[in-house]
Amino acid sequence: MAVSELFQASKRFQENYEWLSVAKYFDRIDSTQKRILQFLPKKIEGAVLVVAESQTKAVGRHGREWISPPGGIWFTLGLPMKTRTIAEMAPFSIVCSHVVVNALREINNLNCEMKWPNDILYQGKKVAGILNSTVKKFKNEWFLVGIGVNVNNELPDSLSDSATTIQKIRKQSQGRSRLIEAIIEAVWVAWGDFDRTGFGPYQKSIEDKLLGKGKMTRILVGNHQTEGTILGIDPQGSLLIQSGSNKKTIHAGEVVG
């Protein structure tokens, strides 16, 4: 059996990244978000990374199934919380989307857009997604960044209208090492920058990549839908819309159309 490209990349990360205290690779696991919990150390010495060639029970936002067979990029990076509170770090979720969009442009020459809050689309089809959460273990707080990118993996027919892969876009198999390396390095750098500066320096650049800005759209908030024109995002990463004569701030929800 051929050695996974992601396995080799994980070994390099452990050897070369001083800021990475733990790097684990699995051929097949339930979920990197779940598995990383067992590797969060009692004494914080750096970030923790779990990479998988495939996942059997991965989930996206709202508990939806995330299809993650071999050929994609699936990982969770555990980042130790520093001076900011969990509430203050919440906008970092959107910064992670920004990082992935930049990496896809740099490595794969893809001009993608961000569908608020955490989906990455290429010409209207999802190519990557981010799921972030926070957890406390041994009295230490961690920010978990789960990232999935459709690279060479197969997609079920049921997703053909809503998702795509880099291989399909480029019409040939794609290497994954450079892309996962670019994303992980950029997330770590952004984590340090965000801790010092907050969301402000990222806001305009993220708004420029925001899908549907200036257009009428529907936003699902809980079990209810609201409509409005997307104006941008506020300093907390919330979505700003114009609904009739009113301006609204959407703190949590999902753009659905």
Rank of each mutant, 00 (worst) to 15 (best):
K125S: 05
K125N: 13
K125R: 08
K126Y: 09
V127M: 07
A128H: 03
A128D: 03
A128Q: 09
G129H: 00
G129R: 01
G129I: 02
I130Q: 04
I130D: 04
I130G: 06
L131H: 07
L131I: 12
L131Y: 07
N132G: 15
S133L: 06
T134E: 15
T134C: 13
T134W: 13
T134L: 13
V135Y: 14
K136T: 12
K136W: 06
K137Y: 10
K137N: 10
K137E: 13
F138L: 09
K139W: 09
K139S: 14
N140K: 06
N140G: 11
N140R: 06
W142A: 11
F143K: 00
F143W: 02
L144C: 05
L144F: 01
V145R: 04
I147H: 00
G148K: 00
G148Y: 00
V149A: 07
N150W: 06
N150Q: 02
N152A: 01
N153D: 05
E154A: 10
E154N: 05
E154H: 11
E154S: 09
L155T: 06
L155Q: 08
L155P: 03
L155D: 10
P156Y: 06
P156D: 09
D157I: 15
D157E: 15
D157Y: 13
D157S: 15
L159I: 00
L159W: 02
L159V: 11
D161I: 10
S162H: 03
T164D: 08
T165K: 01
T165D: 07
I166H: 00
Q167L: 14
Q167S: 03
Q167P: 07
K168E: 09
K168W: 02
R170K: 13
R170A: 14
R170D: 08
K171T: 14
K171H: 10
S173W: 06
S173Y: 14
Q174L: 04
Q174K: 11
G175P: 10
R176Y: 14
R176M: 01
R178C: 08
R178N: 14
L179K: 02
L179P: 01
L179Q: 09
L179D: 14
I180C: 15
E181M: 08
E181N: 10
A182D: 12
I183T: 03
I184M: 08
I184K: 12
I184H: 02
A186P: 00
A186K: 04
V187D: 06
V187C: 08
V187P: 02
V187R: 05
W188N: 07
V189C: 15
V189Q: 09
V189M: 15
V189P: 11
